[in-house]
Amino acid sequence: MTAMLLLGATTARAAESAANVRWFQTTEQSLMDAIATGNRQPWDRIMDSGFVITTEEGQIIGREQFLKDLRPLPPGLTGSITVRDLTVQEFPTFAVLRYLADEWETVLAQRLTTQYRVTDTFRKNGSTWKIVASHVAVVTTDPPAQQVASDGWPGLAGTYQILPDGWTFHVVLRDGQLFGGRDPAKLKRFIPLTPDAFVLQGSLGEWLFVVGPDGKAMRIVDFRKFEPLVWTRVTDR
């Protein structure tokens, strides 16, 4: 008898949990659908009075400001966000959700795609849930290489150093492509954005080569998370 009661309770909890996951999936998708249209109602209905969101730019925005800023996409822009890979960690009084927000948009006929990792926290409010916090982070990927002039790339090759006696960084030209790295045996490809601005494959930030009158780079300004790290040329090889 006891075993049957325990089994019944476990089955009931599993059914309730599955129902909650379906509710969260539907709710999160409705919130994402409301962004492009600027529909405040789905958000207003589910948001806790103390709701706070941390945006992908690091801004912290409260409920009132978020709803005020929520407007339809302007003319010339279209887009949509799909909620994928939703997971739910459910506790007696709150739940933590994580999912991939898969976004596409067209900006005056140019198509852009971006993915975000979203973490939402809900608190239980009687028989329903209220969202109290959201954190959004961009999923970083390598940008597409741009078609740029490469005739000046031989002048970018060389060895650079964080002066006076810091790390060294090697830049080599190989088969028409630039590669760079601190370990000569593990160089990564530079993805060109302009003739002298690059992204290092698999890394955050932009690498800007400052070229002198002789066509050789004097230094590299490596923007690491928007802060410059300067590497100075020390040799041509």
Rank of each mutant, 00 (worst) to 15 (best):
A34K: 10
T37S: 15
Y116T: 01
T121G: 09
V83S: 05
K124T: 02
T78K: 14
E57P: 01
N39A: 08
V96M: 09
A101I: 00
G126Y: 02
G58I: 09
R71L: 09
Y99N: 04
R123E: 06
Q89C: 01
F51P: 07
F94W: 08
T54F: 01
T140Y: 07
A36P: 11
L100Q: 07
L112E: 10
L67D: 02
A133S: 15
R71A: 14
R98T: 06
G58L: 00
E105V: 13
G76A: 11
Q41L: 08
L112K: 03
L97M: 08
I81L: 06
G62S: 10
L86F: 08
S49C: 07
I61D: 03
F91A: 01
I81F: 05
G58P: 02
T106F: 12
E56F: 09
Q59G: 03
S80Q: 15
T54Y: 02
W43T: 08
T93Y: 03
Q110G: 11
R63G: 00
P75M: 03
S80F: 15
P42I: 02
F66A: 14
V96F: 02
Q59Y: 04
V136M: 11
Y116V: 00
P42N: 07
A109T: 14
V107G: 02
A101N: 02
A34T: 07
K124R: 15
T82S: 11
V136A: 07
K68C: 06
V52E: 10
